[in-house]
Amino acid sequence: MYLSEKDVRAIATYARIGLDDTQVTTMTIDLNNIIESLKPITAYDLTDVEPTFHPIAGLSNVMREDRVQPGLTHAAALANAPEQQSGSFRIPPILGGGDA
């Protein structure tokens, strides 16, 4: 077993996903099974093998000219917001506990 339920709770906190107790139990089983299937990766001797982070060789830091370009209007940017107020995205208190 690679992960305990305690580990899974910690991962969920990091991933910002609230899991209930039943979900934690199921997720622990699923993740352990999946991690077991990743074993072939650990079986390799990878000394002196460079990593490949994307498939196009020699491509790095593609830059464009630093120029203002048309973008979304203020209204379009806010149009999909679950909640807005005075032209801004509205969120609950960041530090918690208080009244919104």
Partner: peptide, 27 residues
Amino acid sequence: DLGEQYEQSRAHGFGPEAVRRIMLGSY
């Protein structure tokens, strides 16, 4: 608070396979 909103929205907005992949990537 905002932290709870993130956690609850993502827990209920994503389905089980999406949650599984996000959790796996996070780990």
